[in-house]
Design a protein around this nucleic acid. Structure first.
Lengths: 219, 219
DNA sequence: TAAAATCTGTTGAAATTTCAACAAAACGGA
DNA sequence: TCCGTTTTGTTGAAATTTCAACAGATTTTA
């Protein structure tokens, strides 16, 4: 496992845990590493969630297939990031998403039950592990909360303004840059790119915002 | 605290914890009980999240005020339910919602830091407490995930079908009852009630679903 | 049981969003 | 700098959603 230390150190699950402890812990948790070729399924939709995954090399994608058969990409997972942790912790009987290898990749899988129930050794770092996992889940909820806040608005203008206000608050300034280009912002807000451009134009004309590309100012 | 035992026993945070242990733990956690009159603010938007709240009597509402000043109700909190736990665990610097008393109510407030960092006594039940909190957070993520799944669809029909398919899967049957009336379903799907009725009518005519009031069948 | 209140489906007009297509602008090599 | 590519804004038509209003069905309550 030693060769993965550089990656694991950056994983939010192992924050504040020393290398030595980490290696011991991985053994204690029964962590296993599996290799997946490009396009192969790492976690299949419909199965019981058991494992928390960590990307050691390569990258993966979370996808979902709706009732028409359209597959939509919910997001990418890069090196050092974890996935499926919420479903594993909640012990759902059927995962609603599929995780596939975006390129050849190595994935660490840890049985979630081993994390939740502290080991007989009562290792101290296990406490930290659970703490980290909790923080991760809580942060994810906050992010989801924001997203729902935004896309539950009915019109493009309201969605956009809700997003901009949120960013302004987060940045603690009425001037800020957003991390999206137009198409990405439209995808995030779940609206049409052309309609979004029109709305930004209107808001500028009305003097409610200033904007140049990714830079926004709320008046 | 004894008089609250009946309520606390039903709280998901204290599952699998015996009465005696619970009482000891509350002391250990420094839990305090506060009274709020109707309409009073229990947790104010914009503050740092510190406390996890539990409704002991009465009920509360989670509300949010948008940039136009419109207040929208995000949900109600009933006796034995907890609130603000995600924001407290994530230690957000500014809570995005306000919690107000719906009627005169008693609220138990627990400093989240006391839960996350196990006490010096190393009480065993503290482990269970953290486990319960984790489960709660994870379940909430799953629910949010579903909600985002649904409302990120662009059309009323797609939202409705996604919801019905989800219910069918959950109930493990293509025939099931939904827990909403029309207006509530429309609110949940974030669409117009009239448009929803039209869409249900179309789907029935097309033979894709059967429906009578709250009872649905997927064909 | 009658009356009142609530829930549901329907309708047409107004507003908004989506879609496709194109042109201008910005960007990134070679 | 020039050329090809990507990003962005614009436009008009088609599709969809919202809105307001009403009527029939259902439920509640007095």
């Amino acid at each position: 496992m030693k060769k993965y230390l550089n990656v694991l150190r950056k994983c939010p699950l192992f924050e504040q845990i020393e290398d030595d402890d980490l290696l011991k812990m991985l053994k204690c948790l029964g962590a296993k590493v599996e290799f997946f070729d490009k396009k192969y399924t790492i976690i299949a939709e419909g199965n019981r969630a058991k494992y928390i995954g960590i990307v050691l090399s390569g990258s993966a994608q979370i996808i979902q297939i709706d009732y028409y058969g359209n597959r939509s990409i919910l997001g990418g997972i890069e090196k050092s990031q974890i996935f499926a942790e919420a479903f594993a912790c909640a012990d759902v009987e059927s995962i609603p998403v599929t995780v596939i290898a975006n390129e050849p990749c190595e994935i660490m899988l840890i049985d979630c039950a081993h994390i939740l129930h502290t080991c007989s050794n009562h290792c101290f770092f296990h406490q930290q592990l659970i703490f980290n996992l909790m923080k991760d889940l809580a942060k994810k909820i906050v992010v989801f909360h924001q997203k729902i806040d935004i896309i539950s608005k009915r019109s493009t203008r309201e969605k956009l303004m809700t997003y901009l206000l949120m960013m302004s608050k987060k940045m603690n300034s009425n001037t800020f840059d957003i991390p999206f280009n137009r198409q990405e912002l439209a995808d995030y807000l779940e609206v049409e790119r052309s309609g979004l451009s029109v709305e930004i134009g209107k808001l500028k004309k009305e003097g409610i915002i200033k904007n140049d590309k990714k830079h926004f100012t709320l008046m």
